[in-house]
Every structure is written in structure tokens, then in C-alpha cells.
Measured scan of single mutants.
Amino acid sequence: SEHYTFDGEEQAIRFMRDMEAKNLKYELQIHNGKYIIQVD
């Protein structure tokens, strides 16, 4: 699995939509205002 970190919500949402379009599962965590997305 890989981790991707985003500072902004818009970037994170765009990335998650992209993952959904590719049928990839992901998990979102928010730490200290950063959006951390783990992709299986």
C-alpha cells in the first residue's frame, strides 16, 4: 500500500475521486490538518 499526503481538502477530494474512478480502495485519515490517503 502507498500513502499520499495532501495539505488541502480540495486536492484530497480530487485524488479520492480519481481513485474511485479507477476502482481502487483507499482510506482517509486526517492528522494535524493534513489529509493522508492510504491506497491498497
Rank of each mutant, 00 (worst) to 15 (best):
Gln29Pro: 00
Gln29Ala: 09
Gly33Cys: 02
Lys25Asn: 09
Gln29Trp: 12
Glu20Ile: 08
Ile36Gln: 05
Asp18Leu: 14
Ile37Phe: 09
Ile30Ala: 03
Glu9Ala: 10
Met19Ile: 10
Gly8Arg: 12
His31Ile: 15
Ile36Val: 10
Ile13Val: 09
Glu20Ala: 09
Thr5Arg: 05
Asn32Lys: 08
Leu24His: 09
Asp18Arg: 07
Ile37Gln: 00
Arg14Glu: 14
Lys25Glu: 07
Met16His: 01
Glu20Asn: 06
Leu28Gly: 01
Asn32Ala: 06
Thr5Gln: 09
Leu24Arg: 10
Met16Asp: 01
Lys22Gly: 05
Ile30Val: 10
Ile13Cys: 11
Arg14Val: 07
Arg14Pro: 04
Asn32His: 07
Gly33Met: 02
Ile37Ser: 00
His31Ala: 10
Asp40Phe: 15
Glu10Gly: 05
Glu9Asp: 04
Gln29Gly: 04
Gly8Asn: 15
Ile36Trp: 06
Tyr26Met: 07
Met19Gln: 04
Ala21Val: 07
Asp7Asn: 06
Glu9Asn: 04
Glu2Ser: 13
Gln11Cys: 13
Asn23Leu: 06
Ile36Leu: 07
His3Asp: 07
Gln38Arg: 14
Met19Leu: 15
His3Cys: 15
Arg14Tyr: 04
Gly33Ser: 03
Asn23Tyr: 06
Asn23Val: 02
Tyr4Leu: 05
Gln11Asn: 08
Asn32Val: 03
Phe15Val: 06
Arg17Ser: 09
Gly8Asp: 15
Asp7Glu: 10
His31Lys: 13
Asn32Glu: 11
Gly33His: 05
Leu24Val: 12
Tyr26Asn: 01
Tyr4Asp: 01
Asp7Ala: 07
Glu10Lys: 05
Met19Lys: 00
Gln11Gly: 07
Tyr4Arg: 04
Ala12Gln: 00
Lys22Phe: 05
Ala12Gly: 01
Tyr4Thr: 03
Ala21His: 08
Asp7Thr: 06
Val39Asp: 01
Ala12Tyr: 05
Asn32Tyr: 05
Ile36Pro: 00
Tyr35Ala: 01
Leu24Met: 11
Ser1Gly: 12
Arg14Ser: 11
Gly8Val: 14
Met16Gly: 03
His31Ser: 11
Asn23Thr: 03
Arg17Tyr: 07
Arg17Pro: 01
Leu28Thr: 04
Tyr26Pro: 07
Lys25Leu: 08
Tyr26Val: 13
Glu10Asn: 05
Gly8Gln: 14
Glu2Val: 14
Asp40His: 14
Gln38Tyr: 15
Ile36Glu: 07
Asp18His: 09
Arg17Met: 12
Glu10Thr: 07
Ile30His: 05
Arg17Ala: 12
Arg14Asn: 10
His31Thr: 11
Glu27Asp: 09
Glu10Arg: 04
Phe15Ser: 02
Glu10Val: 06
Ile37Gly: 01
Asn32Ile: 03
Leu28Asp: 01
Glu20Tyr: 04
Asp18Met: 13
Glu27Asn: 11
Thr5Ser: 10
Ser1Gln: 12
Thr5Ile: 14
His3Leu: 14
Leu24Trp: 06
Asp40Val: 15
Ile36Gly: 01
Tyr4Ala: 03
Gln29Glu: 10
Gly33Ile: 00
Ile36Asn: 04
Met16Tyr: 01
His3Arg: 14
Glu10Trp: 08
Tyr35Ser: 00
Met16Thr: 03
Val39Gln: 02
Lys22Leu: 13
Met19Tyr: 03
Phe15Gln: 03
Leu24Ile: 15
